[in-house]
Design a protein around this nucleic acid. Structure first.
Lengths: 195, 195, 195, 195
DNA sequence: GATGAATGAGCATTCATTCAT
DNA sequence: CATGAATGAATGCTCATTCAT
């Protein structure tokens, strides 16, 4: 195997270990030594790939966020109608949050905690642009309520994080029917009423 | 002042300090010594009121959660109509989350983090019963969608946490108009469509 | 024993351990844990008395330097003649350097190493003032060569450090006769020639 | 360039880097990786030329010491008179210490610190033999005081180290006049008095 | 010879918790 | 009740050294 590939593998193993351990115990309760052990490297090796613990978790956040948005928009096409486009994106996001729950949970923890640099947070937000563009189009067409994007996100997207956490905790198991109901609630909350 | 009152004051000071410090730095980045200093007591004194750090944060969570739900239901009366009752409760919750943001932020961090005992979490949820009862009535009357309470909560209530965090971070300032729009989205997402 | 005394004892034990260990191994090869062990306290206890390792060694330096100069000038009296005063001071310094060699060695290491803050170094120098005053008087009276104090110190006092180190290393054992010879050399090197 | 020359260059670069870095930060605060970087080689390469860090610093010491003594005796000739010979040697040493202060400072640090093997220290001393021989001759001729060579060195030579350090620290700038004064003090301190 | 990636051992420092007063 | 001094057990991070290439 190429030497470069080995490096990438190690980096990935570290990112993966970070996600899993931080999910289970939180940032500060996760020692570097444990991350190293889980990734099968020496603690010192982490510092070949990341500057320090904060950098490790920042980079992990950015990476997961990128993966998340890449997945979200993969099957979306700007020529779709607003409603169709929203449904496509929403379902991809639901898919990601509910199936790839390790990653989703990590993001939720980062987003509700002073665990991530403000800079990395900004970096992570940027990738949502296509959704904001879709909403802008929807507003112009009178299909989406003319309200702040923060409100739209709060009602259309963010509830999925709550559902993911609930499922993760075993409080509920989300089947196809739930997803459909959730989608309807999401759409109802942001579409203009007189449709 | 009664000696008992002095004790209560110290306990309250500890709870308050815990909230503020955990909000700013996270649970594990908040040393007991700092909490003690902010509450103007000796570190050892904390252990007269709480078993250990975990107990301190658990109890803090339960206390804040109780305060939260007490506030939420204070002006609600079971004789109100479902829609009226929901609006009353929702607006109280919005009030709490957006105005008493220290407390609300603390709850959000607890709810998205492995920081709280599962037991304490359960304990905290119980207090929401009146809202669940209201929803049950709404479903029977055909006013509220016949879907899982988790879904209802995810769409009707939880978005307020996201908005509170956004406001806390300075991304948005929520005025009366935003609140009204948010309420409409919340209601749209859970009411049955054919009204 | 008073609680205050116990504190002072611990602080002193730490200072003493620092001197001995740094003498044997150097600053960076002396772990805090070893210092703690030798002083019979926990590593954490050091940080109750000193801010960090650098602070510990700085404070140790200042303390030893103060002890050194206090000893040096103890039997000196400003009414003495220049020659008599110099002899008194010189012999006290010789006494200190050659008998209290642990302390003297520590000072020598600090003075020839980037181990001490520049600030602490300045602080340490201040105490030599009486000797400089004596030399000033000597120059005015035409007894001491009219040359820089640095030169006077280099020839009159500093050689004792070299002799102390040589003795410490076992290369020479300095008896009363050596001391007298050394004193003659010191005095010859700074007195004006035409006496 | 011959392959051998390239090797010598690397070794020299390592020695040079060691001196500069140890001067600035001390032995233990100077990582091998930094030495390697400054010498433009890989850390691993150091181990092709030296057994380990201790060996590197030992060899550096011996090399610098040899350079020092070579310089010191270069213009000395055994046929010179004792006084003339001493002046010649002394002035060469002063030259070295005050102009090649990087090297001189490194020696001073080694000589006042448990940084060097006792063996390497012995090795370094050997080269001073011509000076000791000169002194022996001087004693026989009644020109030099009949006292221990350690005393002679302490007063005649060692003060230059102190002056070099003072100059290095910016406390004094030594001009030709200072040097002449220093020489007089040195000579006064070791010559017999009745000349 | 030369390297850069890798590491185990070690270090300064912190912190939850205890205990004598 | 209340405390501040004390501590053992971590933890993040560094570094001399090795080794596959």
């Amino acid at each position: 195997m190429a030497i470069l590939q080995k490096s990438i593998d190690k980096r990935n193993a570290l990112i993966k270990a970070t996600i899993e351990l931080v999910n289970n115990a939180g940032f500060h309760a996760t020692p570097m030594s444990k991350i190293a052990k889980m990734a099968n490297v020496s603690p010192a090796t982490i510092y070949l790939y990341f500057e320090n613990k904060q950098d490790l978790v920042n980079k992990t956040y950015i990476e997961v966020k990128a993966e998340y948005t890449k997945y979200a928009f993969e099957s979306y096409d700007e020529n779709m109608s607003v409603e169709q486009g929203f449904e496509i994106i929403w379902k991809r996001i639901a898919d990601f949050k509910l199936n790839d729950s390790e990653n989703a949970m990590f993001l939720a923890q980062c987003d509700n905690t002073p665990m991530i640099d403000e800079l990395s947070r900004q970096e992570g937000i940027k990738h949502l642009q296509p959704l904001l563009d879709l909403w802008a189009r929807g507003k112009k067409e009178g299909i989406i309520k003319p309200i702040s994007d923060y409100l739209l996100y709060a009602y259309a997207i963010n509830p999925l994080s709550f559902l993911m956490m609930s499922q993760k905790r075993g409080a509920i198991i989300l089947d196809r029917k739930h997803i459909e109901e959730a989608y309807q609630s999401a759409w109802n909350s942001i579409k203009t009423c007189d449709q």
